[in-house]
Amino acid sequence: MRKFKEYIIEKLILASGLASIFFVIVIFLFLLKEGLAVFKIVTPANFLFGKNWYPISEPPQLGIFPLILGSLLVTLGAAIISVPIGIACAVYIAEVAPVRTKEILKASIELLAAIPSVVLGFIGMVTLVPWVKSIFKLPTGLTALSGSIMLAFMAMPTIVSIAEDALYSVPRSHKEGALALGATHWQTIYRVLLPAASSGILAAVMLGIGRVIGETMAVMMITGNAALMPHSFLQPVRTLTATIAAEMGEAVVGSEHYFALFAIGIVLFVISFAINITADLFLHRKR
């Protein structure tokens, strides 16, 4: 009897272990199921590179190129801001900060990670957006730049914590060897620690970027959501994620618009899949 009970439990454990694989597959299948239908009315090339996104005109124009560029632009801006600052912060926490300061900094980074994205979006709307508007004397502060700044901020916890882990996992002896040769602490960091931790730091950057591309609410609230080809950081843009979030509510189930939004979901899923797999390879190469 006990044997039988344990047999059942162990099968349940195995099933739960496999659940993650199952869910990833089911997510992808259902995105495909609802999204592939769009390619009956638009070719994949025209979908990805079409310059017009008018999903409810007649006939609908379903080109997501402006949205892809919107996502890329915001992500690029966020990366330019967050990568150097994030790595610098990780180095400061891992190597320079005194113990007490380190604890406070780590806590505030954790705090940042915990703040819901809609709250940050709201704060961005009422503080960052007016600032951008007045500093650059724009008609609206809802711009790609505002989105980039906000997203850079939101990517920090990912970048800092993973890069910090990477720096910690560099063997102590590397560092002590360099210091023993008379290098300053900074020279040691710059010439020994950073190169040794480079694959982990690269993974940190990639995962940070993954976080940025997937971010939805904050970006929808402060980038202005204009589905036009973007030309500069100082104009409104619309990202892939924001398009889904903003429009799915109005799309009729089974309509072309609905299929197209799922097709955007496929694109996002594939991007995040690629980023996570690659980052994981970098993290494992380290060991």
Binding site: T241, I244, F273
Partner: peptide, 12 residues
Amino acid sequence: NLAGVPSVVYGL
């Protein structure tokens, strides 16, 4: 990968 899927894709 589950951890990395964008939240709006979960919505979809």
